[in-house]
Amino acid sequence: MRYISHLDLLRAFQRVMRRAKLPVAYSQGFNPHILLSFALPLPLGMESARDYADLALTGGEEISPEEIVSRLNENAPGGLRFLGARMLGSGEARAAAIVAAADYALRLPVSSEEDSRAISTVLDALLAEPTLVTLKKTKSGEKETDIRRDILRLSYETGPEPQIILRLSASSARFLNPETVAGLIFERLQRESVGRFLRLDLYREVGGKRVPLMEEIPAGAAAAPGETP
């Protein structure tokens, strides 16, 4: 799955919808396509444990979220599983418009306790910095950017499969690439960059707190997002 680009994944999803014979809505125009959009594109090379997309259905047919999920799973190719669905309330914003942060696990092939201590030290040191200026490539050359405030959380989990958990800004206005942070970490460890990212979940902000997109917001609270992971 991680070898598939975002556009290819989008096409694969549309085909699952078609095989599942869901009452999906199509765009108008010359080349009608299913109204389906992901909360946040998944880069090639990254796997995801929980992803989100909005899907528009036609009004004609009554269909429960459970039914949608089971029909999608019956028609999903290997490596793709649908975890849940919910109907959006009227006026709820698209998932892509409200996603604010993402959790990533960077899985490391670390073994010795010494290694673990070194990593913990580096993470603590990074979090202690008031600013972290990196060079960001833009259309017109490179630009210095402070990424410190886009690192929302950084922790190290030991165990048989040690991993660094990163929570980073992931809104359309402020997006921090996990590779950038990994680069900083490995630079300070004075090691070659290794490991593989798994995207764990996506969040929005509700009253200053970060809530997974799947969670329904009680009526009256802030606007809420989309459905099928």
Partner: peptide
Amino acid sequence: SDEILLNVTKPGRYSGGEL
């Protein structure tokens, strides 16, 4: 390995697992 597949164009050519 990823060392191979993530260093070539269109790794989906080589990974199989299609519907």
